[in-house]
């Protein structure tokens, strides 16, 4: 009905009937292409899902009973948390903090070297840059837990292991970040200082550091934030700190103690995040 009214109101009757079918077929053509590419993506996702369900023996129902079981577990076995163990937890919590911090310092020191070597504008030679980048890429792609597991069997249980593992994986992240910050430094300023006949150290101090400082501080603090989370779970494989305590209490079916340990991890994460945010504000 509306259709008629529209046609009447349009003067170019002939032109209209000539263009309209082709316009509609254009619409259909485009829609088909889009449906095809959407269908292709959906099909891939579906296939991946089916393949994964088949491979892992995952039962979709476990989504429901899993949710149910975890709720039951959390609310009957873990709740209320046993707060009397807080005293025993302060030691491991501090260990976690120390591990994160020392691990950060280790990765900062090593990453500074690797970063300078990897940055295109500061590297002594491009092959060195390549090698340095490969090392950081490798360290970045291997999770800290992997290092921790290997080190636990080599050096033994305890926080030293965790510290080294955190330090190693941190190099992967900070090495890359520092190199990128360094590469974004204004070259003209660098040249200016070089032109005054300054040596390498003077160039770094006068031209590089002022521009590098902000990126350096915020990336390092970000890494400290990350380290707390990592340190907390490294303990699960025996590398000391809160995670170790958590693993122990779960092995002994002391779930209410485990709940307290989790809350403690929580509190530690929040506290460190708050502090790093404050420090970042002050320095930058």
């Amino acid at each position: 009905m509306k259709q008629e009214a529209l046609n009447i109101s349009n003067q170019g009757e002939k032109g209209l009937s000539a263009t309209k079918p082709s316009k509609y077929s254009e619409y259909k053509r485009r829609r088909k292409i889009m449906l095809k590419s959407q269908g292709f993506i959906t099909a891939i996702i579906l296939l991946l899902a089916i393949w994964s369900i088949w491979g892992t023996g995952f039962n979709l129902l476990s989504l429901f009973f899993g949710t149910y079981e975890i709720l039951v577990f959390i609310f009957t076995d873990m709740f209320p948390p046993d707060l009397t163990v807080i005293g025993q937890l302060i030691g491991p919590a501090l260990d976690t903090l120390y591990m994160s911090y020392v691990g950060m310092v280790i990765s900062v020191v090593v990453s500074l070297v690797l970063g300078v070597l990897a940055a295109d504008n500061l590297t002594p030679h491009w092959t060195i840059a390549r090698v340095s980048r490969a090392v950081t890429a490798f360290l970045r792609s291997v999770p800290a837990v992997v290092w921790a597991i290997i080190l636990v069997s080599g050096i033994g249980l305890g926080p030293l292991t965790g510290t080294i593992a955190i330090g190693l994986s941190g190099i992967g992240i900070l090495g890359k970040a520092y190199a990128e910050v360094l590469e974004s430094i204004d070259g003209a300023q660098l040249e200016g200082v070089r032109a005054t006949g300054a040596n390498w150290f003077q160039v770094i101090g006068q031209a590089v550091w002022p521009q590098f400082k902000a990126g350096f501080v915020s990336w390092s603090l970000y890494k400290l934030d990350m380290n707390i989370r990592e340190a907390a779970i490294l303990g699960l494989v025996g590398a000391g700190g809160l995670g170790y305590y958590l693993q122990g209490s779960i092995n002994l079916f002391q779930y209410k103690e485990a709940a307290t340990a989790i809350l403690m991890i929580f509190a530690l994460i929040l506290m460190v995040e708050y502090m790093t945010a404050k420090i970042r504000e002050r320095i930058i």
């Binding site: 259709q3 529209l6 109101s9 349009n10 209209l16 263009t19 309209k20 509609y24 619409y27 485009r30």
Partner: peptide, 21 residues
């Protein structure tokens, strides 16, 4: 089809037939 064609013809009426897609 009817709905699409109507939309296309309205676009024509506001002078945007070439911008439809």
């Amino acid at each position: 089809q009817e709905e699409v064609e109507e939309a296309l013809s309205i676009l024509e009426r506001v002078g945007l037939e070439d911008q439809a897609f």
